[in-house]
Design a protein around this nucleic acid. Structure first.
Lengths: 154, 154
DNA sequence: TCGTTGTTGAGAATTATTATCATTTATAAC
DNA sequence: GTTATAAATGATAATAATTCTCAACAACGA
């Protein structure tokens, strides 16, 4: 019987095939990781994950692979921390991100009403729209509590 | 009589004062540039602009100043090209960006209906929301024409 | 199975960003 | 005004992130 990991890899492999992307071990692992993880991982996290799971990979390949997936609209880039470090996320079901400016935690909100604005954008600009992205910045409940305590202690 | 440039610098100076930010020539020029330009400039463009206009500035100061303005919510960062190069934009009137994936041209759309989603985000996540950003990716009319021609020529 | 075409990876090269700290400057109190 | 002081600037060093290069290798259709 196939393990859960093997199933996920199979799903990823099919996704690659249907997008006419050559099916390499590195691509399978990276895509399956992005499909199942809720961590919205960075380049570094993806690199470490692949190696930890017994696959050989170089940083260059991680960069190339993520760029390839972005170009195929399989995943999106998120500018999470203001330093400009990119994070990545599988993007089959439309959703947006709520990002804590204090700890960088990213939460998904599965509500596609933000997509309605695409029509307005098309009407106003004449662009041929491919996709759109919405991000909310704020302070997560945990950090709200932490920062409150800090203020009291002065 | 004051020139238009001098007026803009004055407006920028007042903006700094009302935000309790120390009023240096570099900050005035950078802020006034962001307030009047529609170029959504990158770090490099800002650096060159300031020097071209006769002010001394170092790259470190450009980085510091932009970070300061972002922290004060005077400007926002936009992840325009997928390489992760940040662009900057003055952000008094809520608007969003439509970005050409081919030539990176950025167009403003002044329609704040996308902001309505902030309420949903608060309800669903418990985050204390500070602001939100919407970005649309597509192909601009010029590039649509160009790419069409290219396809015919093969 | 073979051949072609595309992918990988190690490290070099490049580029972007941050840190350091002596010098200069803005501002507020007098 | 002058002065004190806290903060900003800028040249350069240090570090980190990203891209490039190209030989070796692997996927996949014929």
């Amino acid at each position: 019987m196939a393990t859960q990991e093997q199933n996920t890899l199979l799903v990823a492999a099919n996704k690659l095939k249907s997008n006419k992307i050559k099916n390499t071990p590195q691509r399978q692992v990276i895509l399956s990781y992005l499909m199942t993880s809720h961590a919205h991982p960075s380049i570094e996290m993806i690199f470490k994950y692949v190696r930890k799971n017994g696959f050989s990979v170089s940083l260059a390949t991680v960069y190339n692979t993520l760029q390839l997936f972005v170009d195929h609209n399989l995943i999106i880039e998120i500018a999470a921390d203001s330093g400009g470090h990119m994070r990545y996320d599988y993007f089959e079901v439309p959703h947006y991100h709520v990002i804590c400016v204090n700890c960088n935690k990213i939460v998904d909100v599965f509500d596609d009403s933000y997509k309605k604005n695409e029509k307005i954008a098309i009407a106003k600009t004449g662009y041929q729209v491919l996709n759109s992205q919405y991000e909310v910045y704020g302070v997560c409940p945990e950090c709200q509590a932490k920062l409150k305590n800090k203020a009291v202690k002065i």
